[in-house]
Design a protein around this nucleic acid. Sequence first.
DNA 1: CGCTGTGTTGACAGGTCTCAATATAAGTGG
DNA 2: CCACTTATATTGAGACCTGTCAACACAGCG
Lengths: 247, 247
Amino acid sequence: MADLPLNRFREFVDLTEAELAALAALCGEPERLPARSVLHSQGDRVDRIYFLVSGWLASGVAVPQGVQQIFKIHLPGDMLGVPSMAVTRAAETLTALTPITVLPIQMEAFGELFTEQPRLAAVLFLCVQYERVALMDRLTSIGRSRSLSRLAAFFVHIYDRLHAIDARHPPTLDLPLTQAELADLVGITAVHVNRKLQELETTGLIARKRSRIELVDVDGLRRLADLPAHRLRRDYGWLRDNAADRA
Amino acid sequence: MADLPLNRFREFVDLTEAELAALAALCGEPERLPARSVLHSQGDRVDRIYFLVSGWLASGVAVPQGVQQIFKIHLPGDMLGVPSMAVTRAAETLTALTPITVLPIQMEAFGELFTEQPRLAAVLFLCVQYERVALMDRLTSIGRSRSLSRLAAFFVHIYDRLHAIDARHPPTLDLPLTQAELADLVGITAVHVNRKLQELETTGLIARKRSRIELVDVDGLRRLADLPAHRLRRDYGWLRDNAADRA
DNA sequence: CGCTGTGTTGACAGGTCTCAATATAAGTGG
DNA sequence: CCACTTATATTGAGACCTGTCAACACAGCG
């Protein structure tokens, strides 16, 4: 269990050994699933969430005419299915984009965390807030910018996340996404994605080769995307106090 | 303090007296602010969140050229500024649309909740998840539907929320919003909002008189909006267990 | 080799934006 | 109360962005 990708949580605050152990204890046996498999569909009744150990996965909903809206691309270290905890039926469909490994977490076990590891619960609370901020950024990108900027925003966003997981990650994306899925992500048409990708390429911002996309000019893309730069808080006075209470 | 609009939390689960008291104890003295006042701006350093007692308020960010993206219209009973807890500088600007009354909550006090009222903390966690689901719905609406549907979605959404606060609320909205703000909400232009409002009116879906909008055909609007219908969970086995642990 | 899914291209229609100008309402100071 | 200013709503014409439909190219795969 020592090799769980817990960077996500460490970004917020350093966890104690006990907390890491509690987190690991939550998880069930790892499950391996092939690409294209569905963890759960919108409308399903679900009683567990997941921790993504390896692989990529898309969270989205289907809308009429074979189109969908993809909310988020999940990378290793993400918690999956959490938003649906508040509603009777899953609000999202979770589809594997690559072969994946997940650890299931029963909601009961998750609930106990709140009584037994309050500081860890608070950290999870903050994780969710950050997800919310990310969604707000997506909303801004889709609501108030052109398709070219939206694509740039997506590439930069994914690059930043891969960079956060591994600081040596090169500015190259091997996206396990079709252009149709890219379209579902940024809210345009597959045909239009194709044209705009070509525009990004001829402008010298990216280079393409198969499904591999090289971010030739990251700064240029970032300027084009015009995303707000959020920095994670790490100075949680109230989290420290909390820990002190229990020590 | 007995008149706090706590319906929001009651929607999830019935709170105990002790929990309600703890919630009330978190809050500082009520602050009254006039319309147009700003609770905090994106980029501000903030150390508190708010509980909205009365009035309407918009959460959004400014983007170039005087345009903005509004994430959410907050109604009485909402917690404000929570997403910004995870980042060093506020991710959103909170602007009063009407005169408002808020109760400030220091983050320190909020942190103690996790150790002292774990079940309540879990409920707040779920509230946030629901907010996230709401954002996902907004994203779908803006990303994958036409402006007419987006406007319909907004009206229906606000109506449903007002209805949840007071079941006798008539299908009439007194929106303290300009058409420009409506535009910022649904991601289009003020001019276009005007045209589409007229279209909704001539189609017989709404009627307008000043800033008052009557939802003449709620079902029709809902069909047009094509929003997923989420139902809040109330059968939290793991929440009950939690309470039992402490009893 | 012929499937099937994905990528690419073209022509055209439709939605939305831009840039005005004007009308109406709301607010202000005299 | 009126005259004035300002904010907001409404309208029109044209350009731009994006969607639609259809055809074709290309790759992976049996």
